[in-house]
């Protein structure tokens, strides 16, 4: 009879450990799954950039610097080797440059009217929208995992599993800043 209490406590402990362990694994897998979708979308954008650059190059002669920078960043993100946070930073820079390019297009009416470009721009908008969604989903999953990693008692199991802190995908600077309407009108 006396043994029942310690056995009960041990059983509860084991069940708790299993539940916490499975919860952590599920959070980690969910982050991996979102990360792989994010990679697919980034790859789509990566594939689209050469088409975009070649179709705008002859119209946008004054933006040669921006186009070279976009091509350089595209190569840089595909290099690999760098950490997740570095990669996110480079992808963000690329997002900003592409956004800048979309704004510059306003100065080139011929380009704006080109069917080929309209189609490309739609595809780019689509990818950027999907990218923004995937980025938010990634951050939600990262937050979920990081919370479990730091909160008691799951932090003990997470420590034993050697779970690393997930990096957040910060929104590109342009997305966070509100546009300065005054400056736009005065320019």
């Amino acid at each position: 009879m006396n043994l029942l209490i310690p056995i009960g406590i041990v059983a509860v402990l084991i069940i708790a450990i299993i539940v916490i362990y499975n919860g952590l694994i599920s959070k980690k897998n969910s982050l991996d799954s979102v990360t792989s979708t994010l990679d697919i979308i980034l790859q789509k954008r990566y594939d689209l950039i050469p088409n975009l650059v070649s179709s705008v190059r002859e119209y946008m002669k004054h933006e040669a610097g921006t186009l070279t920078e976009i091509t350089r960043l595209r190569e840089a993100v595909s290099d690999g080797g760098s950490s997740q946070a570095d990669r996110f930073e480079k992808e963000n820079q690329l997002s900003e440059k592409l956004k800048g390019l979309s704004i510059s297009v306003e100065n080139y009416p011929d380009l704006k009217a080109s069917d080929n470009f309209i189609q490309l721009q739609r595809s780019l908008n689509e990818i950027e929208e999907q990218l923004s969604a995937a980025r938010r989903a990634y951050n939600a999953s990262a937050l979920n995992l990081n919370n479990a990693r730091e909160q008691f008692p799951s932090n003990i199991i997470a420590g034993m599993m050697k779970l690393k802190e997930a990096a957040y995908y910060e929104a590109p600077a342009g997305v966070q800043e509100k546009p300065d309407v005054k400056a736009l009108f005065n320019s």
Binding site: S30, V34, T37, E129, Q130, S132, A133, A134, R136, A137, A140, S141
Partner: peptide, 10 residues
């Protein structure tokens, strides 16, 4: 679909 939900609900 967690990502599609965020794609819709920007």
């Amino acid at each position: 679909d967690q990502i599609e939900a965020r794609y819709i609900l920007s």
